[in-house]
Write a protein that binds this DNA or RNA. Structure first.
Lengths: 337, 337
DNA sequence: GAATTCTCTGTGAACGTTCACAGTGCGGCA
DNA sequence: TGCCGCACTGTGAACGTTCACAGAGAATTC
């Protein structure tokens, strides 16, 4: 264990220390089978001795691979920070990639300037793949991405490009069905819904699932739209109450919006769940902290993240295509319904 | 605008296209003043024409700089995702770094395996600097970091190393003073507090500020401890109510814990703010979504992130030392006090 | 008018890897 | 015995930059 030396040890140092050549060290390090056991042992010892760590820059200069993946957050309104889901995705993805010694670079693609930076970064070949988060269908980044021909995978489907950009996601539609059915089974008769943005899979598919159970025509007047923000949940709830004063349940497309809806219901003097039952979606941290606690649909975010990473790594490793992954949801009954 | 060419253009291509030498292109690209306006124009044009983007690997091979900074999350309990502050820090830091064309790679340092990976990454010279998030004083990573002699800056002080690891942070102590004084001014007489972990600056300094106003001896029996989680806020509130049934105010060290405390107060039949006033800290998203809305202390997280990045870049640019930055807090009166 | 400085330019070397190629020695097989 | 293939090894070149150096004119100074 050498004291802090000014110069970092190179592969030459390891070669000298182990008495073999550069090439053999490289082979030993990269798991080439044509390395004698003696050489392998010598190299292993020398690496430990010198504290050698491969220089990625030099390696990627010749291999044309970077060992880096970019996570792009395309969140136009800066509401990312309101979304507790995001942190889960980040944490899990980082870990999974780190296990394969792949570094995760974060980039925000909020405005045109951001986007240009992302594209420049990718075009420069600084990453082997892209992990897309909350990409909307109209996102101009998507077109640019396709031109780049770089492996890309999304967390949650990218609407309109389901066949183009592979993804892993929760089964939003089935989850919504579960909740709608649950409300029906509780004897609710006038069930409204507050959707997320319809250009996101969560917004669209949760509405679809809702309609699957209740009938598209029957719920026509019982739909209001939000944008996943708490505030939009409040606004949509007000709108619904004005339009359909006698509603007795509402399925809200995200826990955060549901928290907003709860506040409005209270403000309007409706008791939850006695007068109005409320169902959320996500089972995020906020679901346990509302009053009353939120009955919601749990989506397996950790698994979504794990699978997304797996897909991306497969593509990077040369797979031509990969199968999308859809994960099951689970209804979590609490106090609001 | 060439069609997707197989080979990425190199500096040689730009040199050829602009009729100058490699060296001149490099100089033009890096803002060297000794470049004629004619050459600069030719290079600029050629870059646009060829779609050239510098190859970072090649550059960092010779400059020994990577253009990369690591953000390390040392959060032993996986409660990162409960913390809305974190996303703000991440978003702002990413942006600020991107503006300087520095990439941000994320690493989690939860267990020993994680930590080993972080150290190996840094020892390999893969990053120019480190951004520490929520590092506790006993974190073994800190010692390793010092041995590495790599620029490191923390978001929030690292207790016990304030003089070693530079930081930007909110003025926790003064913020706590503001809240304590506010509660006193409202006529509250028996003011308790729930602290964060005392090995974090937020835990310690907010308690200090509280004591500054109320007197250390006077509050001896009125202190309970939490760990920033919602659940710990509930437990601490119960403990306080059992010990001091006639308390009429409580200053809670984080909004999330305050949300827990509110739930317990309600459960025990105390009206907020009539019977008990509650003050939080952070002004995070949750503060607006509790019932009643939380009176809290706003810490300028975006500024904290901005300043942290600035300090780190200064160190990377060669500054020997930098001054810690302490930012002012602001009391935000809402309904809970 | 010569010497000196200043601005700008091109060139060779180096950064630390991997890869392709050309061995070398050894055992088996005809 | 001679030949071939096999297991393993070493070496030169290449990846795409930047940097130090040297040199060419032009401008400035004495």
């Amino acid at each position: 264990m050498a004291v802090t030396n000014k110069r970092r040890p190179t592969i030459h140092d390891v070669a000298r220390a182990s008495g073999v050549s550069r090439g053999t060290v490289s082979r030993a390090l990269n798991g080439d089978p044509y390395v004698s056991t003696a050489a392998l042992a010598a190299v292993t010892r020398a690496v430990a001795e010198t504290g050698y760590v491969v220089n990625r820059a030099a390696r990627s200069l010749v291999t044309q691979r970077t060992g880096t993946v970019v996570m792009v957050l395309s969140e136009p309104q800066e509401k990312l920070f309101e979304d507790p889901n995001f942190s889960v995705l980040l944490r899990v993805a980082t870990r999974r990639l780190a296990q394969r010694d792949v570094a995760l670079v974060m980039m925000v693609a909020g405005d045109d300037g951001d986007r240009e930076r992302v594209v420049r970064y990718l075009r420069g070949g600084h990453a082997d793949g892209v992990l897309l988060l909350s990409a909307h269908s109209g996102d101009p980044l998507l077109a640019e991405l396709e031109g780049l021909a770089i492996p890309a995978v999304a967390c949650g489907a990218v609407l309109g490009r389901e066949g183009v950009i592979p993804y892993a996601a929760a089964d939003d539609r089935e989850g919504a069905r579960q909740m709608a059915q649950y409300l029906v089974d509780q004897g609710r008769r006038k069930i409204a819904t507050i959707t997320g943005p319809l250009d996101t899979p969560g917004g669209l598919n949760r509405l679809e699932g809702f309609c699957d159970v209740l009938g598209r025509k029957a719920v026509k007047k019982l739909i209001a739209h939000g944008d996943y923000s708490r505030h939009s949940g409040e606004a949509a709830m007000r709108e619904l109450l004005d339009r359909v004063p006698d509603l007795d349940a509402v399925f809200v497309g995200s826990d955060l919006m549901a928290a907003g809806a709860l506040a409005v219901l209270r403000e309007r003097g409706r008791r939850v769940p006695e007068d109005v039952a409320v169902g959320g979606f996500d089972d995020s941290a906020i679901a346990g902290s509302t009053h009353p606690k939120l009955t919601t649909v749990r989506q397996p975010l950790e698994q979504v993240a794990t699978e997304t990473v797996r897909l991306l790594l497969e593509l990077i490793d040369g797979a031509d295509t990969v199968e999308n992954v859809i994960l099951a949801t689970e209804l979590v009954p609490r106090d609001s319904a």
